[in-house]
Design a protein around this nucleic acid. Structure first.
Lengths: 100, 100
DNA sequence: ATAATAACTTTGTAGAGCAAAGCACTTTGT
DNA sequence: ACAAAGTGCTTTGCTCTACAAAGTTATTAT
């Protein structure tokens, strides 16, 4: 039933780092800056900008609190983000060879 | 057995248009410019530059001939391209939620 | 001869991605 | 108490990417 058509891939998600972030957040529901940085193996600067982009798109929500005296940034997927991610995954299938 | 690590995604392939091109070429073995343009729904300019990029990476081979009096550009995957694509697909799995 | 079409390629510009530098603290010596 | 080092980010600046629009070259239609 492959339609032969390529659905557009949401450009907000179709980026290595942001895809990794979304992927992490799908599985853990909540993740702080350090965790995401380790998981995605990116730099502080990159992570920060990519998080901002995902936040602007309302795909994640970012809560800023304190862990003891230090700032703590905690991220989680929004419903909108979850929807966008599954839509992305469905679209992506158009690009993948038929499932074995 | 998901390692929790995100393998880097080959940047030559991780682009909507180039991914679509690779996807087409995996399934049809040969495709001309017009066919690829229709399949990937991109503009002439974009397709041209993306093909050049894939060619530079030696992922595709581009043969320029004539169909009657008109130029005809025919593309196909190289072995290197085929390998790169399956590597990309394996890496991509790291980013996708566990199958089902 | 002129115009329209085909099959690309090149160019210009706007946006994405990254590392380095910056900022606002807090902790750790001394 | 003070300075130096560390933490947890954000901002900046540069390079690289992606795209559409314009250009090129040749062909077919009028």
């Amino acid at each position: 039933m492959s339609s032969g058509k390529y659905e557009p891939l949401d450009p907000v998600i179709h980026s290595q780092v942001r895809l990794a972030i979304m992927s992490v957040l799908i599985s853990v529901k909540q993740a702080d800056f350090h965790f995401l940085k380790t998981a995605t193996e990116t730099t502080d600067g990159n992570l920060s900008t990519h998080l901002s982009k995902l936040e602007e798109a309302k795909y994640i929500s970012v809560k800023k609190t304190f862990r003891g005296k230090k700032p703590l940034t905690t991220c989680s997927l929004t419903e909108r983000g979850r929807t966008a991610f599954s839509k992305y995954l469905r679209a992506l299938e158009d690009y993948l060879p038929p499932n074995k």
